[in-house]
Design a binder for these strands. Structure first.
Lengths: 338, 338
DNA sequence: AGTTGGATTGGTAACGATAACATGGATGCC
DNA sequence: GGCATCCATGTTATCGTTACCAATCCAACT
């Protein structure tokens, strides 16, 4: 019943069923023209033989892999996970599979990853962010497949875009904070260059303060991305020591914001009465923590969903020029701020 | 400079370099015997032509894909993400790439996913958990590649195992809780059948209570997995209403435990004085929350690392019989319990 | 000088599915 | 009845790389 020989091929299934290999091939496709009867016979024979469809051969001959390549900065981030999940859910029933890689928030690693992914000949490639090495840009441009940049609004997109302005989103939080009376506002974020979206948020923060004619910005560098809760807590400690009169702090993500909140709790500092806290990303923790976190919802899931739609449209030929889907982040006011 | 023709192949690169396609192929491999001079010439020509190595052809001819297939219940879970990250980091410098899929905590979906992944002809397949449909078991057994079950200690493993006993881990927490004087202990978890590791934890809980001769267990079903913070909070609300005299509660994960903690905070219930809380998984939130969470560290990263080691050993022929790596979870006592 | 051996390169066939085209038979329509 | 049409199936060649084997070259040695 079990043989330790070579695995069976379509030819074997064909022989057993008494049809041609071509018919077996058709039986394994969804919409191809095979009689119901024949298909069932083929699939039965395949199951009996323990035949497993060989994508590698199919990929080469048909020049289709049904892969959608996706790069994210970190696999361990609920925002990006939400995007990937929504994307995956919406393309998977079309037989497309996500081929995922992560860059560790490093454009050099992103370049390597992109090259590696393109060798697999995906049908489309989705990258997080709009900043890339020149070679990465070139690789993407020449790949001959749809390219979608997400989580950003690059000025010179490579192809399609589904994203939002990180700077603008933070600016709106600053506007609100100023409107309700906060003046001495700080920012907790990562080191300058690694996390480009984090850097954009900081830029937006600095620009907004300037527009409001406020103090020189109080910036706390919490270390290389991703900024953990722990690092957010440490950064809050630094902030309280270096700028004790700070009235509000905006953190690069809800994770660091929560860390900052806990540091205040440990020190007996009232939030938001003594200091207000704002986060970014609308992670679940921000909704459930006590007090709950003021934050910005960037609609991570919707980014994935819209990206999926866009990809399907392009692959169906329904969209022949670069698409640009702009997401409008929502400021969510909760208990850590007025 | 740019042509909208067909993408170049190795033959084009060979022609431009003045060598045979075979030599081009060798130039793209790491250790193959090509003179330094030739290799550089080939790679230069390739770059000039914008040639991108075609894995699909390579995969078919060499019968190697360098994929490691991995199934996890959810892409949005820090524990599994840690495992995948450690695994990925350790196999990627050997040129192996993770092919990731998620099952939504459903063995039927797992079966579908496993079949889909096996079609891609991975070098090995890593599955989370030790419970599968009969057909999934058969697919894995017959795949002819190393199979590694993780995050569990199945009694009849399919192949290799890197994991721990979920039941035993929770049992040890119960033992501790009983030792320090808690008697009325509850459990917050998911619906019975979906999350098999969660179900094992509940089983361990029930068995441990019985061994200690305690009350009928106070079980709160928080809904289908994954149990979110919000669901943990709701479950805590239910628990407080149905069993107001409960002294301690063990939650299926740190996320639900944190939700439960916040519910106590909202209701002004002292933790741990009025009720103690234990979690599972040692998520970052448990270490940083105020109060910090008593939990169980299952060494998610180490599971990934050991799995990687095991895979590399098997692929190198250094291990010819099924490996079984047992992880010993750690009980971490923090502020939500005595 | 002749032989051996290692390093480098080339020629040929094959991996296993399917695109493209062809065929036979049943059905529909005037 | 004759012809067009459609459906189910078969035949052939091919996708682009690389395993396998062979050939060449040069240095080192007897």
């Amino acid at each position: 019943m079990h043989n330790s020989r070579k695995p069976p091929t379509m030819a074997d299934v064909a022989r057993r069923t008494g049809v041609s290999p071509m018919t077996v091939s058709r039986a394994f496709k969804r919409d191809s023209s095979v009689s119901q009867e024949t298909r069932e016979a083929v699939l039965l024979a395949a199951e009996e033989l323990g035949y497993v469809f060989d994508s590698t051969a199919s990929n080469l001959r048909s020049q289709r892999t049904d892969f959608i390549a996706v790069t994210i900065p970190s696999i361990n981030n609920a925002n990006f996970a939400d995007t990937v999940r929504a994307l995956s859910d919406r393309v998977s029933d079309r037989g497309l599979q996500i081929l995922l890689g992560y860059t560790n928030y490093d454009v050099r690693e992103e370049e390597r990853l992109i090259e590696q992914l393109l060798r697999r000949k995906p049908e489309a490639i989705v990258v997080t962010g709009g900043k890339h090495t020149p070679r990465a840009r070139k690789l993407l441009s020449n790949a001959g497949i749809p390219v979608i940049e997400t989580w950003d609004l690059p000025e010179e997109p490579i192809g399609h875009v589904v994203g939002f302005s990180n700077a603008q989103a933070v600016r709106e939080m600053v506007d609100h904070f100023v409107a309700v009376g906060y003046r001495k506002i700080a920012f907790i974020g990562g080191d300058a260059d690694r996390d480009t979206r984090g850097a954009d948020r900081r830029q937006g923060f600095i620009a907004a303060l300037k527009d409001h004619g406020l103090d020189a910005p109080r910036l706390i560098a919490a270390g290389p991305p991703p900024i953990s809760m722990r690092e957010g807590a440490n950064a809050m400690g630094q902030l309280l020591e270096r700028f004790p009169d700070t009235e509000a702090v905006i953190c690069v993500s809800d994770l660091s914001a929560f860390g900052a909140l806990t540091e205040c709790q440990r020190r007996g500092i009232a939030v938001p009465d003594r200091i207000a806290i704002g986060g970014f990303g609308d992670y679940e923790i921000g909704a459930i923590s006590v007090p709950s976190l003021t934050t910005i919802n960037a609609f991570a899931g919707e980014i994935g969903a819209k990206t999926a739609e866009l990809i399907l449209d392009v692959l169906d030929g329904k969209l022949d020029r670069p698409g640009r889907v702009t997401i409008r982040p929502d400021l969510i006011l909760r208990q850590t701020s007025r």
